[in-house]
Simulated scan of single mutants.
Amino acid sequence: MGSFRGHVLPGTLFLLVGVWHMWSSIVRYVSYPKSFQVRVWNPVTSFDGRLKYLELYLITVGGFIDLCVEFLYSTHLHIIVHGVLNPSHMNNFEHSGMLLMFFIFGVITLLSEKTSFLPLPEGALSLIASTAFTAEYLLFYFHSTTHKGLEGYYHLILVLLIGLCILSIIAGALVPTSFPVDLCSGIAITLQGLWFYQTAFTLYGPMMPDGCLLKGNEITCHSAEQEIHGELLANVQLFGLVLGVLVAVAGAYIYAEPKYGRLNVNNSQIPEDG
């Protein structure tokens, strides 16, 4: 069983990274379409490069803080009980393992980009990122907490979105010049973050479907019809989020093309002017 905070915190991290990835992908493509390259992370080029690695620090520090919340705070430091992992907090330990993978990805990428100790090509970093998402996928698919009914349906959609993240990132490593693949990766991460939020507000907040309620550690509905209605509502919510993200992507492209597309035109004229 999860909680409102337990979904909002990781959702915020995925949402910030996903939105930044989409915007950066669009700007890089409209600026230099012929030399476009897929990136697993995107530097912040403003502020004289002082915030260049902000995304990686967000992943590393944010993942570490969330890891501490799951492993230390949520368990109240009751980690070992009678010589074994505390069985009442297995879901927290599983979440910690997922967050540890993203923390490792952030550390490895920082070492690769900022030092000479671990130089890795972009394709290798993409595969490491896909490994972190694969760990997340397996966590939610084989969760020790039995997701049934309406809660199970929301987590099934989450698993599908995580699978889309894995496929798009691997595709980026295999087709390193594809703008649609790179943009799809950002869209998938954004949708995952939004769905964490949607799950939090629906199952643990004010958007609970009529006839269903949070009782103890379970989501129960008064009848099968009301549970089906809740699942249909989840489909509508997912459609709304997908539509909203696609509209936002189209708007961002329309805004970025005339503003940043001129960079490509100006750069192509430099040799002729010279």
Rank of each mutant, 00 (worst) to 15 (best):
N264K: 13
K259C: 10
L194E: 02
V61Y: 04
T12H: 00
I108H: 12
K215R: 14
I254D: 06
P176I: 10
F103S: 00
T202L: 07
V27D: 06
G274H: 11
Y253C: 04
E70M: 04
H82W: 05
L213K: 15
G6I: 09
A171V: 02
A252D: 07
Y204A: 01
V17P: 00
H89P: 00
T109S: 06
C68L: 10
D66N: 12
S116T: 14
S223C: 04
T199S: 05
A256P: 00
T115I: 08
Y253A: 13
M207F: 14
N264E: 15
G11W: 04
N264T: 15
L110E: 07
V159I: 15
F103C: 02
M22Q: 07
D182S: 15
L125V: 01
V175D: 15
V81T: 13
Y255K: 15
L120T: 10
L194R: 02
G240E: 15
H155E: 15
H147C: 00
I26K: 05
W23K: 11
I187W: 04
L120V: 03
I108C: 11
L58N: 05
A256N: 03
Q37A: 08
K34H: 11
P206H: 12
F47K: 15
D66E: 13
F117R: 13
S96W: 10
L263T: 14
L238D: 07
V249Y: 09
V107P: 00
S130E: 11
S3E: 11
S178V: 05
V159F: 04
I157Y: 09
L100Q: 03
S144A: 12
I108M: 14
L183Y: 06
Y153E: 08
F103R: 03
N86L: 03
Y260N: 08
V61L: 03
A135D: 09
V40H: 02
H78I: 01
M208D: 14
V27G: 03
I170F: 07
F133M: 10
L118I: 14
A250W: 15
P87S: 08
V107H: 06
G244I: 13
E225L: 01
M101N: 02
R50D: 04
T115P: 03
E231G: 00
N42W: 06
K259Y: 12
I270F: 04
C184D: 06
S126Y: 05
D273V: 06
S112A: 11
L160S: 02
V44K: 01
V19C: 08
F14P: 00
N86E: 07
Y260G: 05
G106F: 05
K34N: 12
F117N: 10
V40M: 06
A248H: 12
E136D: 11
N92P: 01
F201K: 03
E122D: 13
Y197G: 01
V249Q: 10
G193E: 00
H82V: 09
L125A: 02
